[in-house]
């Protein structure tokens, strides 16, 4: 079996700061990280590799510097890496990104399981994974926390509202992953990073994967960003203090004023 893991390089949103004067995002100096959901997907792939000896390919799309997240996948144990990087991809929305990644999967060849993070923390859309599955015509299972493989059969535990369900599907399939509560992220050791530098990491252009320009980038994306603006500023909180009893009276007054109690 061959697993492909889709990873994305994202700005670390916990480090994103806002310019208080203009209300705009300060991008400079914000570190780039591997999307945490994709990190978990990589670890899930490595567990399957350890248990069954599967081959793992890590795939990303982004500017040349996104190579570092592919490298991260290799350091964690992936066998080879692919970076889709081409100016033609710039500005792609989730539809166009799914299109390019699906084309890349076809070029990679026989992929049995595709793992992807449930969503990326910069966009939070959760759309690219299902898009890839649709373009490839394979089933998808989203919000998965655990994957077991038995021959071609995949037994997957996925989150649902207020609980979970166990579902069964067959390879080839795409699974989007979300961290379970006992999850601990692992980072590669220095020797692993060092030896991963010798592993193959290919950079493919749009032409390499046979992607048509009309479906890529700003031009090929069905959605377009019309405007970006700072979120409406909230007014400063009305503050109060005093003794616990005074605080309780204050809260009751607020609850009554906002019609939460009579």
């Amino acid at each position: 079996m061959h697993i492909a893991v889709c990873v994305k390089q994202v700005p670390d949103s916990t480090e994103v700061k806002i310019n208080p004067e203009t209300g705009t995002l300060i991008r400079a100096g914000v570190p780039s990280i591997i999307n945490p959901y994709d990190h978990f997907a990589l670890q899930a792939a490595m567990e399957l590799k350890a248990a069954h000896g599967f081959r793992v390919t890590v795939v990303s799309m982004g500017p040349p510097q996104a190579r570092s997240v592919v490298q991260m996948g290799l350091a964690l144990g992936a066998d080879d890496g692919v970076l889709l990087s081409d100016m033609a991809f710039a500005g792609s929305d989730t539809w166009s990104t799914s299109y390019a990644l699906a084309k890349a999967m076809k070029k990679i060849g026989k992929v049995d399981i595709i793992l992807a993070g449930m969503q990326a923390i910069d966009g939070d859309t959760a759309q690219t994974g299902p898009g890839i599955a649709q373009q490839l015509g394979i089933p998808q299972v989203s919000f998965c926390v655990k994957v077991d493989v038995d021959g071609r059969k995949l037994i997957v535990r996925r989150l649902i509202d207020g609980g979970h369900e166990i579902v069964e599907t067959r390879a080839p399939a795409l699974l989007t992953m979300i961290m379970p509560k006992d999850y601990v992220s692992k980072y590669p050791s220095f020797p692993a990073v060092h030896s991963s530098l010798k592993k193959p990491c290919h950079t493919w252009s749009a032409a390499d994967i046979g992607a048509e320009a009309q479906y890529l980038g700003l031009k090929g994306s069905p959605t377009q960003v019309a405007k970006i603006y700072p979120p409406p500023q909230r007014e400063k909180a009305a503050m109060s203090g005093g003794s616990s009893q005074e605080a309780v009276e204050k809260i009751l007054e607020i609850l009554a004023r906002e019609n939460f109690v009579e």
């Binding site: 989730t94 959760a126 759309q127 898009g131 599955a133 649709q134 069905p222």
Partner: peptide, 23 residues
């Protein structure tokens, strides 16, 4: 934008080659 909607809508939008905006 529920677990069901977030699973279904992207599959439909992908198939229709149409725009989908989340959340």
């Amino acid at each position: 934008a529920t677990i069901m909607g977030r699973d279904l809508a992207p599959r439909v939008a992908s198939s229709l080659y149409t725009g989908l905006t989340a959340d």
